[in-house]
Every structure is written in C-alpha cells, then in structure tokens.
C-alpha cells in the first residue's frame, strides 16, 4: 500500500512521465500528448504509417496499465461520478474539448509547459479553472454529480 500523504511517489511518477516524453521527442521527434495521439490514431484521414506508431504507443500505455492493475490494484479506482450518463457525458466533453483545444494534461500540461509555450500555459490554467469550478458546482448541488 502506498501512503497517500507522500509526495515522493507522485514526484517519481512525474519524472517517469517526463522521461517518456523525453524519449518520444529525442528518438522520434514526437510530442507525448495523449489526446492528440488518440485523436489521430482513430482518424480515417491520417495516413496508415502515421496511425501505426500512435497505435503502438497506446498499446504499450494500455497494456502496461493492465499489467499494473494486477500488480498494484490499489492504485486503480473508478470514477466517483454518480451515474454512467454523467461519466459518458464527461468523456464526450473531454474528447471534443481536447481536440478543439489541441491538447490535454499531457500535451499542454507537461509537454507544452516544458517548452514554455504560452498557449499551453493558458490552456492548462483554463482547464484547471473550469475543472475546479465544476467540482465546486457539483458539491453545491449536493454531492457527486
């Protein structure tokens, strides 16, 4: 069991994410933005060769996730949202929003801020602000959405 109060593990996990982004850029010249990788991987207008590496990356991501779920099940939990309808709607907002805004926590939050991109800094502050506002409103409306 991993103590929830420790900051060392999240910091170490963050370093691994940073190393993954480092390897993807240094070896292959690509940015580790998960929403962009998924969006292009499932797009029919993207050339097969361009979809292939993205599918491989996602296979590694989800495959390691499946293995880790067996090794450290306590690190996984389900969404606390109250209904599947809310979870599905949240997913749609995340899918549409990250494509419209050209990135998510990884592409803007990690890779973009590492490049000191103004767009990514503004995007990150925007999604954190709207996320915090949403959590606040859900609490005001009485518990989980």
């Amino acid at each position: 069991m991993i103590p929830s109060s420790s900051f060392l593990l999240p910091l170490a996990g963050g370093v691994l994410i940073g190393l993954s982004a480092t390897l993807l850029l240094a070896l292959h010249g690509r940015v580790a933005g998960i929403s962009g990788i998924l969006g292009s991987a499932i797009s029919t207008t993207v050339a097969p060769k361009e979809r292939r590496w993205r599918l491989e990356f996602l296979l590694g991501l989800a495959g390691a996730g499946a293995l880790l779920r067996l090794l450290v099940p306590e690190q996984f939990s389900s969404s606390p949202a109250s209904s599947l309808l809310v979870v599905g709607l949240a997913g749609a907002l995340v899918g549409f929003g990250t494509r419209l805004g050209s990135g998510c926590t990884s592409g803007h939050g990690v890779c973009g801020i590492s490049r000191l991109s103004l767009r990514s800094m503004v995007a990150t502050l925007t999604f954190i602000a709207f996320g915090a506002l949403t959590v606040f409103l859900v609490k005001q409306l009485g518990g989980a959405a």
Partner: peptide
C-alpha cells in the same frame, strides 16, 4: 470544455 469533463 475539457476542464468541465475532467471535473465531472
């Protein structure tokens, strides 16, 4: 929009 879905 992403932030709202993320928060939900």
């Amino acid at each position: 929009l992403f932030g709202v879905g993320w928060g939900l």
